[in-house]
Design a protein around this nucleic acid. Sequence first.
RNA 1: GGGAGGUUACCCGAGUGGCCAAAGGGGACAGACUGUAAAUCUGUUGCGCAAGCUUCGAAGGUUCGAAUCCUUCACCUCCCA
Length: 427
Amino acid sequence: MSNLFSDLNWRGLVHQTTDEKNFGSWLNEEKRTLYIGFDPTADSLHVGSLLQLMMLRRYQQAGHRPIALVGGATGMIGDPSGKSQERNLLSEEALQHNVESLKVQMARFLDFESGDNSAILVNNYDWMGGLSYLHFLRDVGKHFPVNVMMAKESVKNRLGREDGGLSYTEFSYMLLQAYDFVHLQKEYDCQLQCGGSDQWGNITAGIDLGRRMGGGQLYGMTCPLLTNSEGAKMGKTEQGTVWLDRTKTSPYAFYQYWINVADVDVGRCLRFLTELNQEEIVALDASRENEPYRRESQKRLAQEMTELVHGKDGLSGALRATEVFFGAEINDLSEEELREIFAEVPSQELSKEELSGEGLELTMAMVEAGLAKSKGEARRIISQGGAYVNNRRVAEQEARVTGDHLIAGGTVILRSGKKKYGLLRFV
RNA sequence: GGGAGGUUACCCGAGUGGCCAAAGGGGACAGACUGUAAAUCUGUUGCGCAAGCUUCGAAGGUUCGAAUCCUUCACCUCCCA
């Protein structure tokens, strides 16, 4: 565990620590227990959570004991940090469902059976759900000077606003998170809380509370937020959030997300999100510098992330799908592969009758598949060389789709341009 | 209530009787280039294979012929009360 902190520093993952001078050596002294909180606002984690998951993983691999805290209770309140508006509150049932789903995903990152530093998963609803308001105010609230709370960034930002401000509920959020920390210290001897830089206020609130309640010294560390060169959070595309759940974001789409990370951002991603060692990352930096067209960094990043999140099978599926989507032969695909790869491509069912006789006009087929708004537009695409049947360019306007084109049990794959696909299934 | 101007295709916008399926720009879509990037260049951009058909706020009218002229209606902007 000796080089963990220097590695984190090298990667740029250390934004702030509570004890600049001694934090590193404190970590090295012995096995520590740390925690990071996750918000159960959805039933899947997304790319934005990866950084924190990896952080826990790094600590665990360095020999420390990670606790992943799922905020079943705090999620009911909503953290005002970084939010410009009052949150919508989720129902208790929805939250519990989300908590269960997150547990499963976290198991991919953390080892829950590694002996004395096994990861632990906790849900703060378990100790807060039954907490009485009166007791909470007496034991916890008493230790929070309101003027200190008012001074926190997350609160200050919101108080100045005319539209909405901040509710009492959200104002109290930091007390809950602070209490989590103290509780975990008591239960698991957890002395360190990590989080994104926007969590600093909440983390220090916990440290203060710990001292006031007589629990001894606690530590905090934050890492930078992972944003792209445009300053936006990673993990959002035009299609929406990139999830870790394969039913929400397919392994292929997940892989593609990383492949398309901009050059200026990919170095940070490699450092923040992968476990490649320093030599490998430096080598990739050089590759990017000298032969950018090879895009080694993106490929490596996509490969690492996809394998970690979706496993070897997920990665090979994504690679196969990538080949196919970029023009590989698809005649020999099995029905299953086909369904997997083209899962999120819009498809249309037609009667087999349509193929009888001379077959179906390609123009008509393209309209049916949603690739063209009219036959005229379809004809245009064909004449410009942008039409493909089963990934083979078809340049004749009069071309027809016939039974010979059917692959994998009655499907024809149509494509317009480089990447726009549409499926026709004949039944 | 009085007066002036406007409404054109996905968006902006030119078009004042035939040469108008309608300039130009943006966007979008294809192609080339490239790194699945950015930029650039080329082509296309109402429907129809075609003859042709339907479009210029809506309805009606004048005319051989209307986005264009007339009438009514709807909506928008501005000015005066």
